[in-house]
Each structure stands twice: as C-alpha cells, then as structure tokens.
Design a protein around this nucleic acid. Structure first.
Lengths: 194, 194
DNA sequence: TTCCATAGAAAACAATTTGTTCTGTTTTTA
DNA sequence: TAAAAACAGAACAAATTGTTTTCTATGGAA
C-alpha cells in the first residue's frame, strides 16, 4: 500500500480517536476530522464513503488484532486452561486491553463506547462459538448452545464496560478470577476439553 | 396537562418509534419525525430541545413503567422467589416485554436497540442494587458487590438482546429458567432473603 | 357561553453539514 | 524520467438544524 495512503489513513484514524475522547460519535463532523487529521476533504472521501464507514474500518482494524491474538491463544490453550492457570482467553484479552494497544481503551471509555463494545461482542461470539460443540446441561436444565455463548460473550463485554467506566481499578488477573467465578459452572459443563 | 400537548407528544413518540423500526437513530431527521407526526416544526422544538432529548424522554416514559412495575414485584417477592416459583423479577420483566406494551419491543429489536438496552440496564442496575446488602462469596473467591450487580443486569440485557434478535422464539418462562440456571449460583450466595 | 392564555401551524431564515466535482500539485513506482 | 496515483484546495448544490415571526385554533376557567 502506498505510503501516502498509510499516512493519511493513520492520520484520519488518530484524529477520529482523539475526537471520540472529547465528544460523542454523533456530534463529530467530517469537517472536524479532516481539520484535525490535516487532510483534504477529497482525500477523506477517497478513503471512506461515510463517517459510518470510517467507524467500521476502525473497529475492524483494532479488534482484528486483539481477536486474532486471542484466537491463537484459544487454539493452543483452549478457551479456558484448567485449574488456576492464568492462560484463560479472557485474561489474555483483558491484558491486551490494558496495554491500550492502538488507544483501544479510549474507544472503550468514550461516550460512544457501546458502538465498539457491540463490535467486540460479535467478534468474541464467533471466537467462543468455535469452542462449543454440544449443548450444555446445568442443574438438569437443558440450555441451548447459542444462549450460553451469548451469555459468556455478553457478560464479558459488560464486565469490560464496567471495568473501564470504573477507571480500571482491578488488574486483568483479578477480573479474570471474578469472571471465572461467575462463569465457571457453565464452562465446566459445556466446554470441550482439548 | 393540556390535551393538545398530550396529543402532540404522543404523535411525536409514535412517529419516532415507527421511524426507528425502519432506519437507525442517526439517520432519522427531525424533518421526518414532524412530517410523520404531522406537527409543525415549531411545535417539535417546543416539546423537545433536540432529537437526543426526544430519545431520552421516550426511554424515561417507556422504561419507567416497566421498571416501577418490577420494583413493586421485588418489594413483595424479593428479587428471586425461592425454588421454582415463577415470580422472579426477571420473568416478570420478560413477560412485560413480551406484551409489547407501548411498542417497546420495536425499540429493542430496531437497529438502534443498544441505546435503549443501555438505558434499560442502568434502570435495572439501580433496581438490583437495592436488593444487595453484603459481598458475595463464590467458590472461595471474594467478589465485589458492584461486580455482581453489573454481571446480573448486564447478562440480563444481553439475554434480552439475544432474545429479540432471534425473533423471541422462547417463552418468558423458558428464558427465565435459562437465566436462573446461569445466575442462580451467584444469587444463592448473595441475595438477602426477606 | 365567553374570554384569554396557550398550543400549534406555516413560512422564512442563517448557519452547518454533507458529498461531489473541478483544477492543479506532489509523490510513488515502473 | 514519465506515467499513474494520491492529495490539496476551492467551490458547489442539497439537506439539515434550530430560531424567529406572524397568525390561527383550542382548551379550560370564570
């Protein structure tokens, strides 16, 4: 890819992230983005059809890294390594988030965080889905597989939301323990051990 | 309140809900709302400062009913009546949603459902908060109270989202069973019996 | 029923915002 | 070095927003 394109794309992303930290997605105008990114109007529209398109591209880029890294983790350790080992995918994901790679934390704590969390959840859902094979039984109740998957990915992103809104006072390891405690009973019955 | 005001307000709400079923919140313009509601431009801005203000008012009106009804339910039965009795607040809430009072389902299944679910979750959070008194212990792990509250309200709204997106194939009673199965271990250790 | 305060309609308005189109310049790459 | 591609800048119509003004209709109290 052309260096100019890379620079322009990066500048637009950066400006967009900075603006998201200040105001809600809806209130951000294309004009503000191109002013801050210092690119021409024509250039912006050459890269992205609309503001929504930019949002989508940003999501794909940022979560693409995190999720594919988590996918590797899952393929080697499984969703949830046994016992108290710290290699659960969830811990891995939380650590990644804490490192604030590509300013992803700004997006998750900004006014429009729901947009990104929704994308995050969908990606996570696909990831978890690959790890489930059969229906789970908990306390004699038959529970559909997709209900469980949704419960896990949903709980996780809601936890992340709670975490970042509370200024991330807990460590990823702590959070992982909490999450295991509320999710473990389900995983034990449904997760395919590799 | 003046009958004219009531009519106007209702017409705007109705038009807004109809439009939300068709397109995303962002793409809806004030012009479209007033055209469909058949009210003057001046009138709209006499009732609501902005489109966001309208959204907020709609949330307050719709979720106000459901939550206060659930609050009554909690005050008499507690969060979660013992055993297999069907009077859990969660079941109550799901039944209310299924009745589609004031077209609330349209909002929860529309493209901008996250906006409403977020409001829903906040209301639910407050409701559950009143029912917790002490920290919970699960499997020897100390878990902060607000983590648990967030987990419950978060899981619930994510479940509702999953439910409406899947065209609500399950009955509220079925869903309640699923939800209890994944939440019960937590509730048992933390919920104050009345 | 009458009266008046208030709600609403209609139109016009400036100010933003959007997305496109033009021309000319700079940078990459073949 | 020359062609191709990316970019800047400006100008543009169209749509949208929120306000203002003038006038009409209506509800509720006396």
């Amino acid at each position: 890819m052309d260096r100019r394109q890379q620079k322009t794309r990066a500048a637009i992303f950066q400006a967009f992230i900075e603006l998201l930290a200040r105001k809600s997605y809806t209130r951000i105008t294309v004009q503000e983005i191109i002013d801050l990114a210092n690119v021409g109007r024509t250039t912006f529209y050459a890269h992205f059809e609309t503001k929504d398109d930019l949002l989508k591209a940003l999501c794909e880029t940022l979560f693409g890294h995190i999720i594919s890294s988590a996918a590797d983790c899952v393929h080697t350790h499984g969703l949830y390594s046994d016992g108290n080992a710290p290699e659960s995918v969830f811990c891995h994901l939380l650590q990644h988030l804490q490192e604030n790679d590509h300013n992803i934390l700004d997006l998750l704590s900004c006014e429009s965080s729901e947009i990104f969390l929704r994308y995050f959840k969908d990606s996570l859902n696909e990831l978890i889905q690959t790890q489930f094979v059969k229906q789970g039984k908990i306390g004699g109740t038959d529970i559909p597989q997709d209900f469980l998957i949704n419960h896990i990915s949903g709980s996780f992103v809601e936890m992340v939301l709670w975490w970042v809104k509370g200024r991330m006072k807990q460590t990823p390891e702590q959070l992982d323990l909490y999450f295991r405690a509320v999710i473990e009973p389900i995983l034990l019955f449904t997760y395919r051990e590799i």
